[in-house]
Design a protein around this nucleic acid. Structure first.
Lengths: 177, 177
DNA sequence: GTGCCCATGTAATCTGTTACATGATTAG
DNA sequence: CTAATCATGTAACAGATTACATGGGCAC
């Protein structure tokens, strides 16, 4: 009897799902392009390190989710696109409400419960510093939004709203006793 | 010459930081108590698996951040508390605005950019399903908040606000063309 | 042709996961 | 006394990170 698999074949990691999304969007692209897409993305969710991207794409290919087409150029690089299985797996990842609605690992929320244990003065200083940093990120995102060449407008506006929510929360805590 | 260390001694993982927070809060506790605290936490950020907690505490101890005091009971279990170095490291973790204000790996935001590529009908069905799921989580959190024995009220209210923000974002997208 | 960037990786390591193991304690 | 459960782990493995390697193409 085989033991229960940790990750059943139909479940993708977040990075794998995102890689499929990029490949789907660019419709046949090289691992390098996927990596560049991750690197240029303003979200620092992943480093987009070669050591993550190339093996992930190899895994997806080995699992039959990707079809490879070798190009003619001298570097004989390989362009990948989604197979039928791959499209199905990607759709499942995209529609996975359970994972989408989990909170993930939010470093802000993770610390929020503990800031209270600081001495009052320290805490106020820290919360104000956090508010400044959030404000700063928000302005950065606003600049990004203003640029006409920015993709990912959906995620951008969502991220800005989330930052604003954190800011409001900070201000509410600061306004307390 | 030694190569640059990936993780300099003064940087903690999120789990290590959270473990220090629990140990600090309980003021001298066993690894088991730390683990129970993670397990009982409503946040599913980590599994609180033994294979993560025990090694993490051993690491922190080996790094001199924790002091161990063996108890007298037959299980001769060990209670840990923060050393001076440990308090300093924990404070640094707690006050790390750079990490706190990053967005972490948010599975909702991660997918938000790609939902647009679905056919309009599919997308509306999905977004409504997501809204229901978020609503459901929100109600669960409200119940939790209503219970008098709930700790982590700060993080709880923040998490609820973040969920509400996601809900509003969904409704805004649904209200479009 | 030499130096530099492009594109693709590999190696070592680190942290976390699941699944299993094991001795102590307590309920019956 | 025996069985469940408490408390503490270990083993095998997965997936990511950093740092390094390598070979092709192009600027000068």
């Amino acid at each position: 009897m085989t033991s229960i698999r940790k990750r059943p074949s139909h479940t993708l990691t977040e990075l794998e799902g995102a890689a499929l999304a990029v490949i789907q969007a660019l419709n046949a692209c090289t691992p390098y392009q996927v990596r560049q897409n991750f690197l240029s993305s303003r979200s620092r969710e992943w480093s987009g390190s070669a050591g993550a991207v190339y093996p992930a794409i190899r895994r997806l290919h080995a699992a039959g989710l990707l079809r490879a087409k070798e190009t003619e150029d001298a570097r004989h690089s390989v362009r990948f696109s989604l197979s039928a299985t791959g499209r199905k797996a990607f759709e499942a990842w995209l529609k996975d409400a359970e994972r989408a609605c989990g909170s993930g690992l939010d470093p802000f929320r993770c610390r929020a419960d503990w800031w209270d244990i600081l001495p009052a003065v320290d805490r106020r200083v820290l919360l104000r510093a956090l508010a400044r940093k959030l404000q700063q990120r928000l302005e950065m995102l606003e600049d990004l939004e203003a640029r006409p060449d920015t993709e990912e407008r959906r995620g951008l506006s969502l991220e800005m709203e989330l930052h604003k929510t954190r800011l409001r929360w900070l201000e509410r805590v600061l306004a307390e006793p």
